[in-house]
């Protein structure tokens, strides 16, 4: 199982790289026309924050890289492989639902997102699928008929 130590090390390294990337992007910020000379440059605050965030990430990285400093290194990110599977599949189902909405519209997304999430969670009881679909229809009706949203 993925340990907190490894996951946090990877995360902080990614944060440091992201901070460096965004700091470089900030160099290209250009103020519009006459406002250009007013006050501090636009890149000042983002770069200040990126430096601060990167510094914190370095400290957290150090805490996890040097054994026993962070306190939760031995713990795992997920309690079991089944929980990891359910969480990550649910994440994938949510992303797929959004893509379906983009390409095929709301109704199609509403019809498939519930069953997809149920599948991700390992639901076998058909009644649950039925209840979830009925609730999805309820959500659709509330928004379209009661609130007048065009979905």
């Amino acid at each position: 199982m993925l340990t907190q130590r490894l996951a946090n090390i990877v995360f902080t390294v990614l944060v440091i790289f992201a901070c460096a990337y965004f700091a470089v992007v900030a160099q290209g910020f250009e103020a519009a026309g006459l406002l250009a000379s007013s006050g501090l440059p636009s890149r000042f605050f983002p770069q200040l924050l990126l430096a601060f965030t990167a510094l914190c990430a370095v400290v957290v990285l150090y805490l996890y890289a040097s054994k026993g400093e962070a306190g939760d290194e031995g713990q795992t990110v997920f309690a079991s492989s089944a929980e990891a599977r359910r969480g990550l599949l649910a994440l994938a189902a949510a992303v797929v639902s959004y893509i379906v909405w983009l390409n095929f519209g709301f109704v199609m997304m509403a019809m498939i997102s519930g069953p997809l999430l149920c599948l991700a969670m390992g639901v076998r009881n058909p009644v649950i699928y039925g209840v979830v679909l009925a609730l999805a229809a309820g959500v659709y009706l509330v928004f379209t008929q009661l609130l007048g949203t065009r979905l």
């Binding site: 636009s42 605050f45 962070a70």
Partner: peptide
């Protein structure tokens, strides 16, 4: 962990810098 809190706090503030700069109109 104080530094973990500061890290995500910094991240939250950083994300608000996206968009047009209110003071001089720069695209960020």
């Amino acid at each position: 962990n104080l530094f973990k809190g500061l890290l995500v706090g910094g991240l939250g503030i950083f994300l608000t810098t996206w968009g047009l700069d209110e003071l001089n109109g720069a695209e960020r």
